[in-house]
Simulated scan of single mutants.
Amino acid sequence: MPDTTEADGLTVGQVSQRLDVTVRALHHWDEIGLARPSLRTAAGYRLYTAGDLERLHRIVVHRELGLGLDKIRAVLDDGTADVPGALRAQRDQVAERIDRLQQLSAGLDRMIDAHERGLLLTVEQQAAIFGPQWDPDSPARARQRYGDTTQWRQYAERSAFRGPEEWQAIADATADFDRALGDAMDAGVTPGSPEAHQLVERHREVFAAYFPLTRQMQVCLGRMYEDDPGFAAHYDGIRTGLATWFRRIIDADARAHGIDPDTATWNGEQEERYRKRR
């Protein structure tokens, strides 16, 4: 490669600006023999001629189309290469990528809707799945009350990709659990018994369809089931006194796991882990 002055060609920096390619990329292409400058200055600096620029321009175009460097080398240097075939293959890959991006965009739209609405079902679908007593405005109220919590975000992530069939399965599992709860109370199952512990664990499993439920959080729910008029009416409508009995078996299970129900808080377990780390 002959020595020359900068006036005979463009420097790496000049080429970088002209083609919007990084200096690092130009150095790499030189090192692998993809695009070597034809000239050097007396000090050894690279200089690119008009012919070099033409090759670099073609490299940039093919790279923008998504071709890898090895494929670009074949297109530029192999006279027998099937250039249209290579471009068609790349076009097919681009089409697949576009399809994936469109699916991702649709998924993001559903995730946004789920965070804002909670339940992505029509009013008619909600009534069919959850029954005529279901209030379709309850997700909006829950969003207003809990929308800034971790649990709402977890619920939204689960809700985003559920359709009517998945929600029907959750509704059926909840109804089965409610029946089991009433049957156990009728059968005289006592708080703290193995049968009661199994029911409490089953409740946590069923509830996990919405978000993970710790035992401290479950204690808080047990209080709400007993104290909130809507929840109390639901459980006492299954069996008289069921709301209180349900809270009692939750409390007994918590005690069995070293949790004092009287001091349990919604984020209690997270707070305890934080104290231990300190």
Rank of each mutant, 00 (worst) to 15 (best):
L19A: 04
D251T: 03
L242E: 09
Y274H: 12
R24P: 03
D262W: 07
P37Q: 04
R275W: 15
L119I: 14
D137V: 05
G222F: 01
R40I: 08
D183I: 04
Q151H: 12
I129D: 00
D178W: 02
T150E: 14
I98E: 15
G33A: 01
C220H: 03
V12Y: 01
H197F: 10
R179D: 08
H197T: 05
A35M: 02
I112W: 04
V83Y: 13
S38C: 11
Q216F: 00
F231H: 04
E272L: 12
G230W: 04
G68V: 02
I249W: 00
R247I: 08
D78T: 06
H234E: 11
W245M: 10
R255E: 15
R255F: 08
W29A: 02
G147N: 08
A187K: 05
L199Q: 02
A42W: 03
P229A: 12
R204Q: 12
Y45T: 01
Q17N: 11
A243Q: 12
R145F: 11
R277H: 05
R277T: 14
L119P: 04
P229G: 09
R248I: 07
A209V: 09
S38A: 15
T265F: 10
H197Y: 11
L39D: 10
H115V: 14
T190F: 00
V94F: 07
A89T: 12
M111R: 12
E205F: 08
R215E: 09
R88L: 14
D20E: 13
T240V: 09
D92T: 15
A140N: 10
A142H: 05
A86Q: 09
G222E: 03
H234D: 03
P132A: 10
R162L: 15
R277D: 02
R247E: 13
A114I: 06
D70K: 11
H115R: 15
D113L: 06
D251L: 07
A25Y: 00
F211R: 06
F130H: 08
R223E: 08
D227H: 11
D228V: 07
H197K: 12
A243K: 05
V189I: 13
T240K: 08
H28P: 01
T174W: 05
L87H: 08
D178R: 07
Q133R: 11
A173N: 14
A252F: 12
V21T: 14
G85I: 13
L10P: 01
W152P: 01
R91L: 15
V189M: 06
H28Q: 06
P229D: 06
R110Q: 12
Q126G: 05
R97M: 10
Y146C: 06
P191I: 12
P136N: 07
A140R: 15
A140M: 05
H203L: 14
